[in-house]
Design a protein around this nucleic acid. Structure first.
Lengths: 239, 239
DNA sequence: TATTGAATACTTGTATACAAGTATACTATC
DNA sequence: GATAGTATACTTGTATACAAGTATTCAATA
């Protein structure tokens, strides 16, 4: 398994949440193949905990559509290349919504300041080649935008896709940091562009920034999703 | 409490899901006031079941942001008038996204056929003054649109807001059926307009249909949200 | 009177026990 | 050999037991 998460305050989470995070990681990194059937008892033995937290974990993953709870065991659903495209689509949808709301506010200075600060931190993370730190800052960047309008249901929706995105970005960034370090400049630039679009209230610019990021992340560059081996695994999944 | 749900195959759901549905109803119908602290033990006694399903129920409601799980008890968050506005916003966002995807398909006949069928059923429900049936068909109508593009994460997001929307619509429609029966013609018309916009691939028409429905549902007509007494309760909540 | 401190009651998180249902494997029979 | 039927092992759903931690209450003391 790809080294799992950085131990980032997991200690204060319940065992169920920890197991969920671990299973999520295993599913998204293809350690657990799609179609695998998980039994509460076996997981209970494997993780050396009782069934209660295991059940909690499976419910969490069910909500994220990573497993399907059936009469007999929890079937791993996993994620395909198409799904990865789609989850980025959804984030774009959320941020477009937010952007339009921001246009109606007279003052977004606070948000812009925060975004620039996060951007600086992303640069530092690149400088020190810390893929994990970069990933978390990346997530924080987008979360900051999305939460800036204090829209309850937008927040709920975001919280629903966040864990999966976090895993995907971590996986991707770790891969890039190893193999395609030059990518990060482009990613940074795209984020800078995004801030500027908010500053200038320029919808076109925002869409361009998104389009570029979309392209850079998923197609033209050396991301994990462009890795034929990984992609094959990902594509075969739902076959 | 407002009569609760019609007993619609609840039997096959687990106790936890049933309790969650019941609590959701109590929260959204303001039977349980915002700020109330629920204890697993007390709920366990009240519903005459063990803590296991109660815990499951509370986790479900936490994901829907209806309660906040704290160290000591689960605090009811409830819902405000602003929240109701926002959840409709979010559904509009989802359906706009879907609409744009539908524009790229060459053939939406199947979807359109299904929508017309559901619309007919809504008319029948009105004719027989069955508010519950109407509500479920209404939900089904929108769900049919949203699921039509088979977009995994859009589906997940919808499943997240669906239970709350279902409750809200049920509450609202029951109220209208009693007090403002004439409203239903307008609602039907708006839905017909929405189908036509898909048929004609007319984005403007869709937005108009949405705008009308939005207005009819929440502002100009005799819905529950226009009921000063209920609205006061709703507004005071987060105070 | 105000404050400190201990006892108590209540909270959640986890482990375990039990019940009901399902798939599987094996045996007996045709 | 094929099939029907039963026994067994495994599954989830629910109930209960136990542990650790927190708020509250109430009394003793400054």
């Amino acid at each position: 398994m790809n080294g799992f998460y950085p131990r980032k305050r997991w200690s204060e989470a319940s065992i169920g949440q920890q197991v969920a995070a671990h299973l999520r990681w295993r599913i998204l990194s293809k350690d657990l193949e799609s179609g695998t059937v998980l039994s509460e008892n076996r997981l209970s033995e494997e993780y050396k905990v009782s069934r209660s937290p295991i059940r909690e974990a499976l419910r969490i993953l069910e909500r994220e559509d990573l497993v399907q709870l059936k009469r007999m065991g929890a079937k791993v659903i996993g994620i395909t290349a198409k799904d990865i495209d789609e989850i980025y689509d959804v984030r774009l949808m959320l941020e477009s919504f937010v952007f339009k709301q921001l246009l109606q506010k007279e003052n977004n200075d606070e948000l812009i300041k925060n975004l620039y600060m996060i951007l600086e931190m992303m640069k530092v993370a690149v400088k020190y080649r810390d893929a994990d730190e970069f990933s978390f800052r990346d997530i924080e960047f987008h979360e900051t935008i999305i939460q800036s309008i204090h829209h309850r249901y937008i927040g709920i929706l975001w919280s629903n896709i966040k864990p999966v995105m976090e895993c995907l970005i971590l996986l991707d960034m770790r891969h890039r940091m190893e193999n395609h370090h030059e990518d990060f400049k482009r990613v940074i630039d795209n984020h800078a562009l995004l801030i500027q679009s908010i500053e200038k209230r320029d919808l076109r610019l925002m869409e361009e920034a998104f389009y570029r990021n979309f392209h850079d992340v998923k197609k033209n560059s050396g991301g994990l999703w462009a890795n034929p081996e990984f992609l094959k695994k990902v594509t075969d999944d739902h076959g």
